[in-house]
Design a protein around this nucleic acid. Structure first.
Lengths: 150, 150
DNA sequence: CGGTATCCGTTCTGATACTG
DNA sequence: CAGTATCAGAACGGATACCG
């Protein structure tokens, strides 16, 4: 059962001025935060990506993701199914067969996260460079130099 | 700083030769996932959102987020700074003052995550409904025979 | 094959105390 | 005011065993 559902009608803001940046609060009371954290899950993103334009069965998904354990795949699938992003079809056959596919809602989410993935791919190099710079700064015992200002 | 040193999760190390994910590019997949997992962090998203078009000092950020602990704010800020998304400015004054602001790279990320937030906001109702339906199904002891079938 | 429940280690997170 | 170091509890996640 969810928590804090009756607290805020929509947003859970409290201290806002004129910016649109503070739409959400850091508390779990905010549904946006909760859902965002869910769909941004490492496994969820991967599953949604794999289910794009095709349905896969349990073992197929497991093969595609490979690194995921059976437990996490089940948990992830259940969460996505609960959120109405993935549809689960059970075939009553002797060798059990279960197919998973994106719902229309899941498809729309796929488009959105693709933008985020695209950004990440486009800036992999920049982030890597930034990390290298930061790593050197962290490794530096003392900068010694007073700065380029003088 | 125990979590300051990020190690490989073990998923994308040593298996870069057998990626079957057709959506993303082979070994880049793990990097994408790593960065994605970082920027999709609950606190990171909030900090980036708050720093949009303005710079804030440590206490100001703490007041805005409020629910975050001093420790997590520091950790989050360090990670964002390391990834080149947030710039840290230290003022050598008697009352210590440190300002945080988005870098140009951070600004571009802000635009992207806003899309994700927008999607979440737009589909809050659908997800809530889906969860309600799923919750009822979970509460069902046993579906027994299918209704319309028999 | 698909799924669940349990055990156990790892990671994350918050509260606290201390420094400059 | 800003930051660091440490500890304890919670949550996460993997491996295993077992069921339909």
């Amino acid at each position: 059962m969810e928590e804090g559902t009756s607290k805020s009608p929509g947003y859970c803001t409290g201290t806002e001025g004129d910016y649109t940046a503070r739409q959400w609060d850091g508390r779990e009371d905010c549904e946006v935060r909760q859902i965002l954290d869910r769909i941004a899950d490492k496994w969820s993103l991967l599953v949604i990506a794999l289910l794009d334009r095709q349905s896969l069965r349990f073992t197929e998904l497991r093969r595609e993701v490979d690194g995921i354990s059976q437990r996490m795949l089940t948990v992830t699938l259940r969460q996505l199914e609960r959120d109405g992003l993935v549809h689960r079809t059970v075939h009553p056959v002797v060798p059990p067969r279960v197919d998973y596919a994106l719902t229309p809602l899941g498809v729309t989410l796929h488009h959105t996260i693709q933008s985020l993935v695209h950004w990440t791919e486009s800036h992999l190099d920049e982030i890597a460079a930034a990390r290298s710079r930061y790593d050197e700064r962290a490794a530096t015992p003392v900068p010694a130099a007073t700065g380029p200002a003088g």
